[in-house]
Design a binder for these strands. Structure first.
Lengths: 103, 103
DNA sequence: TCAATAAGTCAGGAAAACATGACCACCAAA
DNA sequence: TTTGGTGGTCATGTTTTCCTGACTTATTGA
């Protein structure tokens, strides 16, 4: 149940999976903030007005599963968790930049 | 009410609008079919298994509003309506091709 | 030891998206 | 003049997604 719908549709349209992986109320914004450096659960909760723990938790988990974010446990001083844009995530940046030109 | 959510979010993230414009159960598939030439309401209904009038109607309307599809009334022989990929729609193709490479 | 911060989970409800079936208007062929 | 195709709308119901509030575990600074 980690990844679910690898149905016929994904075969028909490879882009659909990626598209789905960024649909949802908070994912694009999380992605955007992650561009500026590692993001953290609690700071996202603060920065994304109107967001909530549950939704962010789910979004982060899914983005991690889809390989867009890397979750790393920082064992230093205040011991916390960071989410970083993965290689795959970074490769999406170019796509988004193209997208922004279209408007 | 033709275009609705030009809220702060769109200002923060120009790509989000486009992203949203292709989220939804049928839009990617409609887009895909529209690549091969004009699509029609009734043929979409036939070709997209599991689809229904209501959902297609809404999807087509939104894609039209977002400027991805052009709705044209063909006044010839059987008098029908065609949906064609607009210029903006076509410029998205390159983006999708890039997207497919990421997988 | 107490309170705070960080990062969550869980049950439940509200809201949004999607599907169903009935219906409608227009046109054309039989 | 009724049957069939095309392109829908509308009311309603189901399903999915999202939000809320209560609770949890671990770490840490006072």
């Amino acid at each position: 149940m980690t990844t679910k719908n690898n149905t016929e549709k994904d075969i028909n349209c490879p882009a659909e999976g990626l598209l789905k992986s960024l649909s949802g109320k908070w994912k694009a914004q999380i992605f955007r903030l992650a561009l500026n450096g590692p993001v953290r659960f609690s700071s996202l909760l603060r920065d994304l007005e109107g967001s909530n723990k549950q939704s962010l938790s789910v979004a982060l988990k899914e983005m991690e599963e889809q390989g867009l974010l890397d979750k790393i446990i920082v064992k230093e001083k205040p011991l916390h968790i960071e989410y970083n844009l993965s290689g795959k995530g970074k490769s999406l940046v170019a796509v988004f930049q193209q997208l922004e030109l279209i408007k």
